[in-house]
């Protein structure tokens, strides 16, 4: 009779974390920055249709890095949760915190499940503040950790270096366009420049009306980056 291998719980978690980190590091990074007049989300993404950044609800946006099929499934679940909540209660009752918690619960439970592989994703849920609510960024890690930020969140493999570069230039009083250029500079680093075709950009801004989410693409993005 063969004996099953014993793997201690510490070792198992370490292996899982390593597996998830490797998966996430294979993809490219994403930054969410709180600007004076909104939130900028920018990701290195050469695809025009397979989005890393998406609209969840009126004032809530989603960003995901890692394995596309995994974070896209979570994105769709987020849209569903928000739309159902908005219909059952009111549009203003839809908040980022409960969604971020639900994401953290799910991602954490998959990570802890011994029969499942951990999700190779990292998420950010960004919420533009309103009269009764603060502007917030919720960063959800692959193991289900959740942190709330009021300045910026960096997701992906190179996140520590990118965050250092962004911290050096970050200024909470910058407007959306200025924050975008700062984020793109941090994302590309000193040795390369990213063109508008390699970037996916979206703004959460009250000037877009009820649905604050708007993508910035094509020539408009090119013009913003050249300034």
């Amino acid at each position: 009779m063969s004996m099953p291998y014993y793997v201690g719980p510490e070792q198992m978690m370490k292996d899982k974390a390593e597996f998830a980190q490797k998966g996430i590091a294979r993809g490219r990074s994403l930054i969410a920055v709180v600007a004076a007049d909104g939130i900028v989300l920018v990701a290195e993404n050469p695809s025009r249709s397979l989005h890393k950044i998406s609209e969840i609800y009126d004032r809530i946006a989603f960003g995901g890095v890692g394995k596309y099929n995994e974070y896209d499934q979570l994105r769709v679940a987020g849209v569903r949760q928000a739309d159902m909540k908005g219909l059952a209660y009111s549009r203003e009752d839809v908040d980022a915190q409960s969604l971020a918690n639900a994401y953290a619960q799910y991602v954490g439970s998959v990570f802890a499940n011994e029969h499942m592989k951990p999700l190779e994703v990292e998420l950010v849920v960004a919420e533009l503040g309103a009269a009764h609510r603060q502007t917030q960024l919720y960063h959800v890690g692959y193991e289900g950790t959740i942190t709330d930020r009021h300045d910026f969140a960096v997701l992906g493999g190179d996140s520590a270096q990118i965050a250092d570069r962004l911290l050096a230039t970050y200024d909470a009083s910058n407007d959306l366009d200025l924050s975008l250029r700062g984020a793109v500079a941090a994302l590309s680093g000193p040795d390369r420049t990213l063109s508008h075709e390699e970037l996916e950009v979206a703004y959460l801004s009250s000037r877009n009306g009820r649905r604050c989410f708007a993508r910035v693409t094509g020539s408009a993005l090119e013009a913003l980056l050249e300034q």
Partner: peptide
């Protein structure tokens, strides 16, 4: 409310 996820 939990995440509305379904079998494929």
């Amino acid at each position: 409310m939990g995440l509305p996820l379904f079998p494929i």
